[in-house]
Design a protein around this nucleic acid. Structure first.
Lengths: 152, 152
DNA sequence: CTGCTTGCAAAGTGTTTGCAGGCCC
DNA sequence: GGGCCTGCAAACACTTTGCAAGCAG
């Protein structure tokens, strides 16, 4: 089900090009690494990974690139409770899912994108708050860690 | 509607005493300041406030005290997207509400405590995740900022 | 007294910024 | 070539830690 990383990379680069952004080695490196990791790395982790293949790319550039990619909608990030932000490409197959960080193992897991729709409606109806699900950092325990803690 | 800060302070101190924790000037200062601010200050803001009335209390102590208070359940904290954690006393009148940070003004607003119950159930039923609502940092736009952005 | 707490200073994360030079288009 | 991007280093915000002295119980 996972798309070829190559597809995701090409898509991302196209998005950059069509926005008139420049394609540089650093940006290519960030996008390629994001695509190949496929995970939800933090900027710091990503920085480490990128430097394995492209040692000349500076950390600060990674941060700036992620900023740019996020601003363009090519990538998204979740601010994880008390930790570093997690990034991933906004490829079409991953679209519109939510993120939750497991307090036990620290991983970011994907959850259904419509999960918070009822909550958004309720808050909206009651005039309390305009909730932006994509900005929400859910937290709790993932199924793997649940299995460990509470074996049947 | 707000309880006298004095009540909240007394309650908090009692909780400390009954847990066998020591009552020190620093702890009293933190609790008093939390009670009087009534808001959801960050550790850093709290530190600043405390030092206005108790200049001898060190920042590091504030962090340690907040840690202790949180561990005891006397205070709670929300990890706010990309920023500092926000703290407040877990006084009975405030109990069990959720927090959302406004992306426009940065404030922390309180939302109904049962807001995420359906979400918790759904995730639990589907065996996906054990969501801990108290650890969730909601985000979006608060009603005040909505009013500004979208005047009738 | 005993040992939990504090003050202080320093280190540790995660991230941002100013600047000069470099490369994309 | 013009100006966006980058590398570098330093600063920044927030938080944690080791240690010796101090105070609560």
């Amino acid at each position: 089900m996972k798309p070829e990383p190559a597809d995701a990379i090409a898509t991302a680069l196209d998005q950059l090009r069509s926005r008139g952004e420049r394609i540089t080695d650093a940006r290519r490196a960030v996008i390629e690494t994001l695509a190949h990791l496929g995970d939800h790395p933090s900027a710091e982790q990503l920085s480490t990974s990128v430097q394995e293949t492209h040692p000349s790319v500076h950390r600060a550039t990674i941060y700036r690139t992620l900023d740019t990619l996020t601003a363009l909608g090519v990538a998204t990030h979740v601010h994880v409770s008390g930790g570093a932000s997690a990034y991933h490409l906004a490829s079409s197959t991953h679209r519109d899912h939510l993120h939750a960080s497991c307090l036990a193992c620290g991983r970011i897991v994907d959850l259904p994108g419509d999960l918070l729709d009822p909550v958004v409606s309720r808050l909206s109806n009651e005039g309390l708050f305009l909730l932006d699900p994509s900005m929400v950092a859910l937290a709790g325990t993932c199924e793997d860690c649940l299995a460990v803690r509470a074996p049947s």
